[in-house]
Amino acid sequence: MKKVFCIGELLIDFVAENQGKDLSKAKEFTKKAGGAPANVACAISKLSGQSAFVGCVGNDPFGSFLLNILDKESVDLSLVQKSDVFTTLAFVSIDEDGERDFVFSRGADRELKYDSNLKNEFKENMVHFGAATALLGGNLEDAYSRYFFDALTQNAFISFDPNYRIDLWKNKEDIFIKKCIPFIQKSHLCKFSLEEAQLLSGKTDLKEACTYLHEMGTDIIVITLGGEGTLLSTKTYSKTIPSISVKPVDTTGAGDAFIGCLLKQIATHHNLEHTLENEDLLTAMVAMANKAGAITTTNFGAIESLPNQKQLVS
């Protein structure tokens, strides 16, 4: 089985549970572990895959809390760095349909420094780039770009999720799009939300959006559509794969559970090229990933809501 290296942020989500979507009215918050790439690493490990998290946390109680959570999920933490800068925080509100609103207080995640020793570990493994904060400048963006080059030169399977957050990119959408383009051009697999696919392609029609994004270079596109399932698109076929029916209470981490489950399944196959050209196999993988994402929405908090293998096959 190939190992999946997940690069990006690990942070504290302070969740205003059951208080609506308006953060200005929230009075009580619950501390949760968060950060899209870290969620993906946990999703993979929880499904008995091999994952490593590459990121930076503060040398403070919040950083310790986060690392303890990932350690309990058996994520490889040997590549995590610590900084004297405080651990990154996100304040999250959730409406009755499980949809979220974010406010970020950035800290240690941006301090990740490039480690040239990691290049050899990427060789013929898998690297997932989750970009919620990684394209916002600082050491993290520099390291992120250099790790991307390393993954390309080491014949790694590359997955990219832009993790667009309006709060972080308001009035700077053009910059966000420009920074995402190299990753879309070179990644084997890109996972988008509906909003992200439309923003990055400039197309409202999903078929046109996929055509545009494929022309950039990426081979496989998955666009998560919530309760409607996932649009799977390659350069030769396109289909919408339904999900299971659930009553969502918190959509935090659903996309991360989806891509984590999909990557874990891909990692079990030695011949990736043959696997990804097999329409029936890839369709089955996405259907399973849909189930993982749906299950995650049925509880509060991302990591503790991620399903294990038993839950997926039941």
Rank of each mutant, 00 (worst) to 15 (best):
M1K: 11
F5E: 06
C6A: 09
C6G: 07
I7L: 15
E9W: 05
L10A: 15
D13C: 02
Q19M: 02
S24K: 14
K25V: 01
K25F: 04
K25A: 05
A26L: 02
K27T: 14
K27L: 09
F29S: 06
F29Q: 07
T30K: 15
K31N: 05
G34M: 06
G35K: 06
G35H: 05
A36T: 12
A36F: 05
A43F: 04
K46P: 00
L47P: 01
L47T: 09
S48C: 00
Q50F: 02
V54E: 09
V57H: 12
N59K: 15
G63W: 10
I69L: 11
L70H: 11
K72I: 10
K72R: 14
K72P: 00
D76A: 07
L77K: 14
V80K: 12
D84A: 02
T87L: 07
T88K: 06
L89F: 03
L89W: 01
A90H: 08
S93Y: 04
S93A: 14
D101I: 05
V103G: 00
R110V: 06
L112M: 12
S116L: 10
N117S: 15
E121L: 14
M126P: 00
H128T: 08
H128S: 04
A131I: 10
A131C: 08
A134H: 07
N139E: 13
N139M: 03
L140K: 11
E141T: 13
A143N: 11
A143L: 10
Y147P: 03
Y147H: 13
D150T: 11
L152Q: 15
F160A: 07
D161L: 03
D161I: 11
P162Q: 08
D167I: 06
D167G: 00
W169R: 10
E173D: 14
I175A: 12
I177K: 15
K179R: 14
K179Q: 08
Q185I: 04
L189P: 01
C190E: 06
F192K: 11
L206E: 11
A209S: 12
H214Y: 01
M216K: 14
I221R: 06
T224C: 05
S233F: 02
T234S: 10
K235E: 01
T240I: 15
P242Q: 09
I244Y: 08
P248D: 10
V249C: 13
A254C: 15
A257F: 03
A257S: 15
G260Y: 07
C261Q: 09
Q265P: 00
I266Y: 00
A267R: 08
N271Q: 11
L272V: 09
L272N: 05
H274Q: 15
H274R: 14
N278A: 02
D280W: 00
T283R: 04
M285Q: 10
N290M: 03
N290I: 01
K291P: 01
G293F: 03
T296Q: 05
T297V: 09
F300H: 14
F300M: 05
A302V: 04
E304N: 15
E304Y: 01
S305Q: 05
L306G: 04
K310C: 00
L312R: 09
V313Q: 14
